[in-house]
Design a protein around this nucleic acid. Structure first.
Length: 403
DNA sequence: TCTGGGGTCCTAGGACCC
DNA sequence: TCTGGGGTCCTAGGACCC
């Protein structure tokens, strides 16, 4: 049976949601109708465009460009802060609402999801009509608009929802690949970014149709494993399932921060690292997982990024153990060039603590931190972030300085 | 006050073993 | 005695997504 997949995509999610929030607060203006953007705080050096209104777009403002640059393009641009908590609330709200239509929903990001509607046609005779119903109900209930893409697989549904915005329903069924997908530029294809686009252009491949007709062997020379994806995608082929678990795979947990000032001060940097370690390990414990690999992420004042990772001898969720490793990695790899950003990542997450006792070492008696850890987590949860950090942890960073 | 933050997946190359 | 080659594990970095 042919599958029917919907892809639902909130139009200008952050901006729309902030507009909804402001209207709720009694704000007079709908910021979707004026030149406006959601942007990070410039004083905190997070000044980039996260979302833009259609009017702002007309001024040539693009996502991820610096705010100061956007202001140059449009001097009366209005800038609003991101409101993450409210976004998460809205995200839950509309995804829960979608469960009325099918139990098989896969979150794809904060503002996108796939719904597998296969086999529901005895309930909903006309999918396009149904999509309109869903779209209009969301608008009415929650005050923001979405695009709905319909296809026989996830890729086509996703491509379809991107066709024309906002507040639209589009289909990209199998028999529409030639007319709707092939005329598009290769850069429009999902997973074809800047780099791949340029390489395809260099091969004189510009449209998806041209890509579809390029011999696989020729693509493989350039793109290796990616070639197969490109070939399949250009023909609108995608066998992946809609699976709610996909979004919660949790292969890694990370946090990075752009520092308020560039610095080489290792004490200061380790303070950041400690708070970040505290944050990611808390998340790890909340998810009931254990980490096997620890990474430290650096970006220097020249915008050069580098990272270093090391495996732990045993998987753990213990802040102290992980922070020890973080400091070790930092000390070995920090190049001494003033840093703009620093971060911590935990990866190779497992469900179970695998305690492998080496035959060469006698397992030292470790005090069990887990009860204390849990109490600290609860307090931090109650009173906000990063309040309580045990003093003993700070010592780990200091000790390593004296070596 | 110039360039965010959180993810996934893939690849190349080195170390090490047989 | 003149350096093969397969396999595995690990790491750094890049491309891409929202």
């Amino acid at each position: 049976m042919e599958r029917i997949i919907f892809h639902i995509d909130v139009n200008n999610a952050f901006l729309s949601w902030t507009a909804v929030y402001l209207l709720k607060q009694g704000y007079k203006e709908d910021i979707r109708k004026i030149p406006s953007v959601i942007g990070g705080d410039e004083k905190e050096r997070r000044g980039i465009v996260l979302a833009k209104s259609p009017v702002a777009k007309k001024y040539g403002i693009v996502t991820a460009e610096p705010i100061y640059q956007a202001k140059k393009k449009c001097p009366n641009l209005q800038i609003f802060e991101a409101n993450r908590e409210f976004y998460i609330e809205m995200s839950h709200l509309f995804k829960n609402y979608l469960k009325n239509y099918s139990p098989n929903i896969e979150e794809f990001s904060i503002d996108e999801c796939f719904i597998d509607m296969t086999g529901t046609n005895y309930l909903y005779k006309d999918y396009v009509k149904l999509a309109h119903k869903i779209k209009d109900e969301i608008k009415e209930k929650f005050g923001f608009t979405v695009n709905v893409g319909i296809g026989n697989n996830k890729l086509c549904a996703k491509m379809a929802s991107d066709f024309e915005k906002p507040d639209k329903v589009h289909t990209l069924y199998k028999d529409e690949i030639v007319t709707k997908l092939w005329p598009l530029d290769v850069s429009e294809l999902f997973m074809v970014g800047k780099k791949t686009t340029q390489e395809l252009y260099n091969m004189n491949i510009h449209t998806i149709e041209e890509l579809a007709h390029t011999p696989l062997g020729k693509l493989e020379k350039k793109f290796k494993k990616q070639a197969e994806y490109l070939r399949k995608a250009s023909w609108g082929i995608d066998d992946s399932e809609v699976n709610e678990e996909n979004y919660h795979k949790n292969n890694s947990i990370s946090t990075t921060e752009t520092l308020k000032y560039d610095t080489v001060d290792t004490d200061k940097l380790k303070e950041y690292l400690l708070r970040q370690t505290e944050r990611v390990t808390r998340e790890l414990r909340e998810k009931g997982k254990y980490a096997n690999t620890v990474s430290v992420i650096f970006k220097d004042n020249q915008f050069i990024s580098y990272s270093a990772q090391e495996k732990l001898s045993n998987s753990t969720d213990d802040t102290r153990e992980i922070y020890k490793k973080v400091v070790e990695i930092f000390d070995k790899n920090f190049k001494g060039i003033s840093l703009r950003l620093i971060g911590v990542r935990l990866s190779e997450l497992t469900e179970h603590k695998n305690k492998q006792i080496s035959i060469f070492e006698i397992e030292e008696e470790k005090e069990d931190n887990s009860e204390i850890q849990k109490t600290i987590d609860d307090l931090n949860k109650k009173f906000g972030n990063d309040l309580i950090i045990p003093a003993s942890l700070k010592i780990i960073g200091k000790n390593s300085l004296e070596k």
